[in-house]
Simulated scan of single mutants.
Amino acid sequence: MTITDPYAIAAAFQAGTEALMEYLSAHVLTCLVPAFFIAGAIAALLDKETVLKYFGPTAPRWLSYCTAATSGTILAVCSCTILPMFAGIEKRGAGIGPATAFLFSGPAINLMAIILTARVLGLELGVARAVAAAGMAVVIGLVMASIFERSEGCPAGKYGTESNPLLPEDDPEQTECCRPKYLTPLFMAVLVAILLAATSSAFGLLPKTAIIAGLVTAAACIMKRYYLPEEREAFLAETGWLARRIFPLLAAGTFITGIISYYLPMEWIRDLFGSSSLLACFLASAIGSVLYMPTLLEVPIVGTLFGYSTGVTAPGPALALLLAGPSLSLPSMIVIWRVIGAKRASVYISLVVIISTLMGMLYGAIIS
């Protein structure tokens, strides 16, 4: 059966449709919707000075990169779910270095994935993944900053961006909004808790629904009681704008990924991953960067589909897959391209693939 065979085309189209339907059913409500609200809160409500303090181009490097590189430990998100949050802090004035370190670390270092890797694929590979991912986040951020660091004279202006209206905290004449400084971090924490509860497998459906309902009610009460109508409108407008900008690209990219997965010669690929050579690790990084690996599912994908658990895939390519796969996918690359531009996106994607390759080779050399 050839690629142009009508039956193959129909099967590939069906594979793309199934991938899209699976993504929509498994990730939209539990992952993307909470992520869009978090991103809207970052872009519309979070004090710009707070973002600049931890992620700004003039923030102390030890602070910004430590924060960015470790923030992923509490976020059980995939390469697509992290994108709205990345877009939010990037729009709010974060430096390109800390922002891309956060973009990589979010899906690459989440605590549940590291623990599952250690339990299913072995302690050595789990530790190697945690150490390599944290180091990669810092290195990628530093390289991106050295190449593309923003000019100090280009922060967002008083009137924000095309989607971000004037916020009360940016206007010195607006004195009505007098609330405790901890309210916005608390509101953000509640939104993050909703995301964590929705993606957790520690609860049954009924307890999970009750927890999420309680958290949503708490967030709504905080928003209604402590925020001005202008702020609420800005929050919802920013959330909707990010959803309209990002979601269609994710859906299209997921559909295309399903088609590509259908045509991938998996048996041939497994044969290539039998050693930790440069070619094997590079192919693993390149393939991982294109395939969509949902959070936690990268472990069975590497262990079963690519044969690491049965000894078919060597340790080097396995680590390269675990580094590049969760942090990138074809849908996420499309969105990253849109958010930060072709040049920055190309450099970021290249860094992920190249450094994942080198980390895989190094780990393979150490293990062997």
Rank of each mutant, 00 (worst) to 15 (best):
M144E: 06
A320R: 05
C78Y: 00
S368Y: 09
L52C: 01
L121R: 05
W268P: 03
E124P: 01
T357D: 00
Y292H: 06
T357L: 04
F273I: 07
C78K: 01
P165N: 08
I336S: 04
R244L: 10
A243Q: 07
A41T: 09
L166D: 12
I246Y: 00
F247T: 14
I269S: 09
T175R: 11
A118S: 11
A314P: 07
T73V: 11
A320W: 07
I9E: 02
L142N: 06
A193G: 06
T81Y: 09
G106C: 14
T81F: 00
A137R: 02
S356M: 08
T17W: 12
I222R: 06
A202K: 13
I3E: 09
L75C: 13
L328T: 09
E124A: 06
M293P: 04
Y292I: 09
Y7W: 09
V302H: 05
G240R: 10
V143H: 04
P98E: 01
Q174S: 15
A237P: 00
G72K: 05
S163H: 11
I336F: 00
A69S: 15
P168N: 15
F247Q: 03
F187E: 08
Y159Q: 08
D171L: 07
V352I: 08
V138N: 11
P172V: 13
I82L: 03
A44G: 05
L351R: 08
Y23G: 02
F13K: 08
P326E: 04
M333G: 10
A130I: 08
T209E: 03
M361Y: 05
G106I: 09
I222P: 04
A213C: 15
A137G: 13
Y54S: 05
C221W: 06
I340Q: 02
K181W: 12
R129C: 07
A324M: 02
W241D: 14
R150Q: 14
P6A: 09
F235I: 06
G364Y: 02
A26D: 10
I287G: 04
R344L: 02
V51P: 03
K208T: 12
R232Q: 12
A35T: 10
C281I: 04
K48Q: 15
A252W: 02
A197I: 04
E152A: 14
V33E: 08
G307C: 04
I287Y: 03
R129H: 10
M21S: 14
A19Q: 10
L250C: 13
E169N: 03
H27Q: 12
Y159V: 13
Y262V: 08
Y226V: 00
T58S: 13
E18M: 05
I355A: 04
A234H: 13
G258C: 09
K158F: 14
P248L: 09
V138D: 10
S151K: 10
C177P: 00
S309A: 15
G253S: 11
I9C: 02
P185K: 04
P229K: 15
T100G: 04
I82T: 09
L330R: 09
L236P: 00
A280H: 11
P248D: 11
T357H: 06
S25P: 01
T70V: 13
L305Q: 12
V127E: 12
G56Q: 07
S332F: 11
P168I: 11
W337T: 00
A15W: 02
L362S: 07
C177T: 07
G126R: 12
P165H: 04
T295G: 01
T100I: 10
V127R: 12
P34H: 06
Y262G: 12
A76D: 03
V143Q: 06
A145Q: 14
L24H: 11
T161Y: 07
Q174N: 15
